Amino acid sequence: MATDIQIASLALTRIGHEGVTAFSASGNKASRWFASNYEFIRQALLREHSWRFATKRTYLTRDTVNEITGATAANPVVITIADGHSIANGTEVFITGVVGMTELNNRAYTTSGATATTLQLVGVDGTSYTAFSSAGSLTEYVVSEYAYRFALPSDCLRILRINGAERDDYRVEAGYLLTNEGEINCEYIFDNTDESTFDAQFVDLLASRLSAEVCFYLTDNSTLTEQSWNIYNNKLRMARGMDSRQGTPRGLDADAWLDARV
Rank of each mutant, 00 (worst) to 15 (best):
T64D: 10
L205Y: 07
R171I: 09
S9N: 08
T72H: 08
Q227L: 12
D168T: 02
D83G: 12
G27T: 03
D243T: 01
D199Y: 07
M1L: 03
D169K: 04
V143G: 01
Y129V: 00
I41G: 02
I95V: 13
T69E: 08
T118Y: 10
L60V: 04
F53S: 04
A254V: 09
S208M: 12
A239T: 15
D4L: 13
N180L: 06
G123H: 05
R261W: 07
Y148D: 06
N163W: 09
R42L: 13
A44P: 00
G182H: 03
D259R: 04
A73W: 01
F23G: 02
N230H: 08
D191Q: 11
G16Y: 01
S208T: 09
E48Q: 14
V20E: 10
A82Y: 02
Q120T: 13
S228D: 07
A254Y: 05
L138N: 06
G113N: 12
F202Y: 15
Y109H: 05
F53P: 03
P153C: 09
F34T: 07
S211L: 04
L224T: 06
D83Y: 00
D199Q: 12
A8Q: 12
Q227T: 07
G27F: 07
T248A: 13
H85I: 06
V98G: 10
T102V: 15
F190H: 11
S50V: 01
C215V: 07
T58C: 15
L152I: 10
G251F: 09
P249N: 09
N221F: 08
R237L: 09
E48H: 05
L160F: 04
P153M: 08
A239N: 05
D155V: 04
F150N: 04
G113T: 07
S26V: 12
V124K: 11
P249G: 08
I15W: 08
L210F: 05
I79V: 14
I184M: 05
N221Y: 08
E67Q: 11
G136N: 03
S211C: 11
